[in-house]
Amino acid sequence: MVERYKLEEIVEINGTTEDKLLTTLLEVQSASELNYISQEDAEFIAEKFGIPLNRIYEVISFYSMLSMKPRGKHIIEVCKSSACHVRKGKNLLKMLEDILGIKAGEATSDNNFYIEEVNCFGACDKAPAIKIGNDIYGNLDRKKLTEIINRYWEA
């Protein structure tokens, strides 16, 4: 759940016309501790936009970047599309699962990391690539991957 003042602020900055709904949902989600949109937050947005709650549910369930399920503090997105596939992105996913001791679609017990397999995010020139928040890391091997994870662990 996102704090009320933060929700108010996001809505205030973006406005409540319908073309701002997706941006608002994305921003509310990233303001939440575990990268999801809670029932309460969804209700708040529905009320502010003056649209039914079921519309909010529909939109959240349609777009793959949005989630109503708590995920983790850092979402590690692993690309599984063509360029990463042919440069053995599957091995990268296995390494990552091995390092964190979880599978894709799961969070670490401290909720610090959540692994998600995703489609192409346009970092094909660095394949195989992962994305953590807005940061993209490519051309990875086990050593580099461990270093990156450690950096987020410390942060």
């Binding site: 997706l22 949902l25 994305l26 529909e58 793959s64």
Partner: peptide
């Protein structure tokens, strides 16, 4: 306007729906 992860929104009419804040 930001999308939120849906390939089909590259299709013109789906894109219009998405700009209107719909699926």
């Amino acid at each position: 306007v930001s999308g939120a992860g849906a390939y089909v929104c590259g299709e013109n009419s789906a894109l219009c729906e998405s700009i209107e804040g719909k699926s």
